[in-house]
Design a protein around this nucleic acid. Structure first.
Lengths: 205, 205
DNA sequence: GGGCAGTTGCCACCGAGTGGCGGAAGCTCC
DNA sequence: GGAGCTTCCGCCACTCGGTGGCAACTGCCC
């Protein structure tokens, strides 16, 4: 990550300091664990005060999901950019290809991140909170396709719930099996199941 | 809730005290809110020490989900009692009928409880944590039907994720529309969608 | 009634997170 | 290159949820 140019000295220092905190924190989380690593330790090693920490990050958990807003925004962008695609499922397949490829590339980093997340109930809860944001984004996108008010579009909401449900369980499976499978392929068959129906007799594995 | 008999004085006192805490807490949560009500206030009004509170409840959130373990166990019981039903979806429809009826009966209480839950991020997170327990129970049940190791049965896990996804979004919709709809009916059509597939063109609503 | 075991209350403590304030940066205009 | 303004940072004190330890009490059982 190159340091961005054209910033005032203040902004540069801030960005560097923030990056240092993230760096220190992830090192400590891997060495010890999320729950046992205190903010005081992180702040001491990153040479900032605890008070300043909370001016940079909204809470301790934000250290583990640093690009939460950006990723959601990118996804929303993707959905609205593909609104002209007739079938919603085709748009989802497109998203699966894009994100599947991204995750495949970053799988090394994702695995260590996931190890941290899995070690803490609080982080798992936060991950599901993020999923909920995505679910709402999907429901909104589908409702607006149909010209409906998102809150009242039961169909869009249920489908969005199902999608996030299969995506999260697929990803968890993928992580627990050390990212060995082809994530895009897994995602595609999950979407197939949603579109065509889960056969009553599951295939042997 | 009648006080159970055949308990020692000690056990009776404990049960009464615990019930009193729950009672006080819910009154305070409704009057003010979950987040702004401190444990000190609850404990003071229930005449116990904060230390004793944590011997009765694992944490503050447990006050809102007092029968968490019981409900999960009842559900697991239901699943294993219906294991001989050939089609997994038929077992789920049975569960939907049972729980749908229960929820319909208790909807007054559920609505006030849901109002409390929705007012707090922490409680919403806890609710999703409980969903995850149910999801795992479903995945285990389906895997064991197929004679598979639960962790490796991708199919069972993805289906379980989809089920919890539609159930949670259906329930949220139901609550947000003041429990006016027939929950069992909503649940049935969600299961239909999962079994037969989500049509690519959603119906108007 | 007396000894034992379980339970309670109290106190001191930890870690996350917040409010307030004085002081030290960086920025700007001359 | 300063003077003055603004913004940011560090520090302190505090709240609240949650835990450990220990002394005292209360019900239980013989």
């Amino acid at each position: 990550m190159p340091t961005p140019q054209n910033l005032t000295l203040r902004e540069r220092k801030k960005a560097e300091s923030k990056a240092a905190v993230l760096d220190v924190a992830h090192r400590l989380f891997r060495a010890d664990s999320f729950d046992t690593t205190t903010l005081e330790t992180i702040c001491a090693q990153a040479s900032i005060s605890k008070r300043t920490f909370f001016r940079y990050f909204r809470d301790k958990e934000a250290l583990v999901f640093p690009h939460r807003e950006d990723r959601l925004e990118a996804f929303v962008q993707f959905l609205s950019a593909n609104e002209q695609i007739e079938k919603p499922f085709e748009a989802l397949r497109g998203a699966t290809r894009v994100f599947g490829a991204q995750y495949h590339q970053n799988r090394e980093h994702l695995m260590t991140q996931q190890a941290i997340i899995r070690s803490s109930q609080a982080l798992l809860a936060r991950e599901r909170e993020i999923d909920l944001d995505w679910e709402r984004a999907i429901a909104r996108a589908f409702a607006s396709r149909a010209g409906n008010v998102p809150e009242d579009d039961l169909w869009a909401r249920v489908l969005a719930g199902a999608i996030i449900g299969v995506v999260r369980s697929t990803m968890t499976y993928w992580f627990e099996h050390d990212c060995r499978d082809d994530l895009t392929e897994l995602g595609m068959s999950a979407l197939d199941a949603l579109e065509l129906g889960f056969p009553s007799n599951q295939p042997a594995n």
